[in-house]
């Protein structure tokens, strides 16, 4: 009811709508342009004439689909994102459970050493990390791509916070029923964590799908590029603009779908999860 007091009325209402539409248009324009221009013919891009949503041509998509590389890039990106999501969720839920509900020697030290690394910029770790992976033969491999990102401090932290909120009594009851720690974790804790797992899952997926610098370093050969590094290479090779945009659209669609499906989880928990860990 009180919201109604401030609900915009009359002229103000119109003004708010106009401004909001304008801002939304400016925000969405680059993405709109990307999609529309990917359906244009090579060399026919002009502003603003090319931005009309007709005169469709699938020339650019046909061109990039004929190269086997784009398929490899999509598969690589999917493997990188999906495997990372599954492993990160599992590993951080396990750690979050132990940090929240178990007591063991060194727990505080371990937890604080994890949290303190949130302060350390990723880039300072980049060179030793690369040297480690390169020396171990991890260049152009999936494990070299995935393994270094699995210790996700942000995810561990969020899982711990969430699992702390699960009442101890619930876990005690399960123990009385004869469950051991693993079955408690697997049958009680994990199912209760569904909302946070969904949120984290979407964010981890977004981070990895969109990741650039690490895939750029690990994927040295063209077959081991991901969509982001692949698109950057298309741009660098001066591939015609509609084709670059077509590649960009392919990279964007899964993100867009994930965002639509999980929008509730994304926007409600953005405060905690919007910061890349």
């Amino acid at each position: 009811m009180t919201t109604e007091t401030f609900a915009p009325r009359g002229l103000g209402k119109v003004a708010i709508h106009v401004v909001a539409v304008l801002c939304a248009f400016v925000t969405a324009f680059p993405l709109y342009a990307m999609v529309i221009l990917s359906f244009k013919q090579q060399g026919s891009i002009e502003f603003p004439a090319s931005l009309v949503p007709w005169d469709f041509s699938t020339e650019a998509f046909q061109a990039i689909f004929t190269s086997p590389e784009i398929w490899r890039w999509m598969i690589n990106t999917a493997i990188y994102a999906v495997v990372s999501v599954v492993l990160i969720l599992l590993l951080s839920a396990m750690a979050g459970y132990a940090f929240a509900k178990k007591r063991f020697r060194g727990r505080e030290v371990m937890f604080w050493s994890l949290v303190s690394m949130l302060m350390v910029p990723y880039h300072i770790t980049l060179i030793p990390l690369f040297i480690l992976i390169a020396r171990s033969g991890g260049i152009d491999t999936y494990w070299g791509l995935i393994l270094p990102g699995l210790a996700n401090v942000q995810a561990i932290f969020l899982m711990r916070q969430f699992i702390k909120g699960i009442p101890d009594e619930l876990l005690e009851a399960a123990r009385v029923d004869g469950c051991n720690d693993w079955t408690i974790f697997w049958r009680i804790v994990l199912p209760l964590c569904k909302p946070i797992l969904a949120t984290l899952g979407i964010f981890v997926f977004l981070w990895h799908w969109n990741d650039f610098l690490w895939p750029l370093l690990v994927g040295q050969s063209p077959e081991m590029r991901t969509l982001t590094t692949g698109i950057a290479s298309l741009q660098a090779e001066q591939v015609p603009l509609p084709q670059v945009f077509a590649g960009a659209v392919l990279a964007f669609v899964p993100i867009f779908v994930a965002y639509l499906v999980g929008q509730r989880y994304v926007t409600e928990n953005a405060v905690a999860a919007g910061i890349k860990g």
Binding site: P128, I131, L132, R135, S136, G137, G138, T141, L147
Partner: peptide, 20 residues
Amino acid sequence: KFLTALTVGLLGSALLSGCG
């Protein structure tokens, strides 16, 4: 060598079994 000097290589080495 850098590996012995700089990284906690021991911890990683179990995971990073050499490629054939």
